[in-house]
């Protein structure tokens, strides 16, 4: 049975306008996705396609308007400690030490203070931060903060890890180190992972499968298998492997169409304001967006 199964999940946001009027903003238009136990599933998609919305739904923080998400066959009714979330950035509590942050989720489960401390210290060393337990978040680098966030989620011993662009704000080197650690930890602890990213390279490197989401309102356009073994991923020149390059090209092609759609939609809005500069805007907009994606 699938660990996570989303059936025709729809979500529309209401955006408040002046007075009591609302604009409807469809975010998800029927998402279908199956994730097997222990699988590392990555979702990529253009900005604003509803990736994070979907992750919030799986986390149980919001409810779908239509459709269901089931974990081990049981529909989600709300948040659960079995589905821990790692957020984008700055989600650590600044008033707690590193240790206090990792202990946070344990406090409502485990009343034994010494045991909590021990568990938290273990997870801190697992993410490579032993010796930093008395530091406050503002004393840590961006990469270290995200390591603490990961330790905080792992400390709950969830079977599912939901990761919402956890590495987006980090520099390239830190990012690569963390990617390797995330891969190692998730495989060692046999977690089912749902990971969201903008970066195609990151998706190919981490994912057993990569789901490509369409432009808003989001649906899963295609799920791509990444034929890389754990040993191949561990190698330093995995990015040069044929499978890596081919997967990357395929994903890039799928994604490019969606990015172009987003750009066109934006250019059209633009065109209404400045009809005379339409052509130029559209062209430069497209070129810029393609460049931006190539950089990632």
């Amino acid at each position: 049975m699938a660990k996570i199964r989303a059936d025709n999940v729809k979500k529309t946001f209401k955006i408040k306008k002046e007075g009591n009027e609302f604009d409807e903003l469809p975010a998800l238009a029927g998402v279908n996705l199956e994730i097997d136990p222990g699988e590392f599933m990555v979702i990529v998609g253009p900005s604003g396609c509803g990736k994070s919305t979907f992750l919030d739904l799986v986390g149980g923080l919001t409810h779908p308007d239509e459709g269901t998400i089931a974990i081990d066959g049981k529909p989600i009714t709300g948040p659960s400690r079995d589905r821990a979330i790692v957020f984008q950035q700055n989600a650590l509590f600044p008033w707690r030490t590193t240790l206090g942050n990792v202990e946070f989720g344990l406090e409502s489960i485990n009343p034994d203070q010494d045991e909590r401390r021990e568990i938290a210290l273990d997870y801190l060393s697992l993410v490579g931060l032993s010796g930093y337990h008395n530091h406050y978040p503002h004393q840590l680098s961006g990469g270290m903060k995200q390591r603490v966030s990961i330790a905080r989620a792992l400390a709950l011993n969830p079977s599912i890890m939901l990761m919402d662009e956890p590495l987006a704000a980090l520099d390239a080197q830190t990012r690569e180190f963390l990617q390797r650690d995330i891969l190692r930890i998730s495989k060692e602890s046999r977690k089912t992972v749902l990971f969201i990213t903008h970066s195609i390279d990151e998706a190919v490197f981490l994912g057993d499968k990569v789901a490509v989401m369409s432009a808003r309102p989001g649906v899963i356009k295609r799920v791509v298998d990444i034929p890389l073994t754990a040993e191949e991923r561990a190698s330093d020149d995995v990015v040069a492997a044929t499978e890596f390059v081919q997967s990357r090209q395929l994903l890039w092609r799928l994604l490019k169409e969606e990015v172009v759609k987003v750009e066109e939609a934006q250019s059209n809005i633009h065109a209404e304001d400045h009809s005379n500069s339409l052509l130029l805007d559209k062209k430069t907009g497209l070129i810029n967006s393609v460049r931006a994606f190539a950089r990632i």
Binding site: I85, F87, N90, A91, F93, R96, F104, S108, L156
Partner: peptide, 29 residues
């Protein structure tokens, strides 16, 4: 209070009272 702190608390299944005591109050202090 940064909504992400509340999200963290909710995702860890905190009760309303604990959410106030452990997240809202220290964040607003």
């Amino acid at each position: 209070v940064d909504p992400v702190y509340i999200k963290v608390g909710r995702s860890m299944g905190l009760t309303k009272f604990n959410l106030f005591k452990k997240v809202l109050l220290p964040a607003a202090l």
